[in-house]
């Protein structure tokens, strides 16, 4: 890869993965899959999301993984971005809460009570 190819790639990927901008037509379900998340059950949660999304025939949702947000007291954590909704981080997500996130948050536009957590901090790249 040359320098200019890297720059082009970055520009393209910035648009594709732009994380802060609203107006995404896709539902993004991003699961914290660091060691602490996995220890708390993130793998089962990921499986549940796929199953429940399929059950409700939700087509426009993507289930992805990320590293640890650092909220170890609230693992597993899941960030949900859905069109027309604020981005929200859910904590202490077990299989039941994962189901509620799909059925209430994604399908009904309602937050799941008692599981919303605040983003721990702004980061130096998106300030």
């Amino acid at each position: 890869m040359t320098v200019s190819e890297l720059r082009d790639l970055r520009e393209r990927k910035e648009k594709e993965h732009g994380r802060q901008g609203p107006g995404t037509s896709q539902v993004q379900i991003i699961i914290g899959m660091g060691t602490s998340g996995i220890a708390a059950g993130a793998k089962e949660v990921m499986k549940t999301f796929s199953e429940v999304l399929e059950e409700h025939e939700v087509q426009n949702a993507q289930v992805r993984k990320t590293g640890s947000l650092g909220l170890d007291h609230a693992e597993p954590t899941v960030e949900v971005a859905a069109p027309g909704m604020p981005r929200v981080i859910y904590g202490q997500v077990d299989e039941e809460v994962a189901r509620q996130i799909v059925e209430r948050h994604i399908l009904e536009g309602e937050l799941v009570d008692k599981h919303v957590y605040d983003r721990p901090a702004p980061d130096a790249l998106t300030e």
């Binding site: 970055r10 993965h17 732009g18 994380r19 721990p120």
Partner: peptide
């Protein structure tokens, strides 16, 4: 929040297995 993320700027944001997502964030 009293926190700011420099070192952890991408932790919990990008897919660590995707170099594209790293590149998208100034990687």
């Amino acid at each position: 929040q009293k926190q700011v993320r420099l070192v952890l700027r991408n932790c919990g944001l990008i897919d660590p297995d995707s170099i594209d997502e790293y590149i998208a964030r100034q990687g």
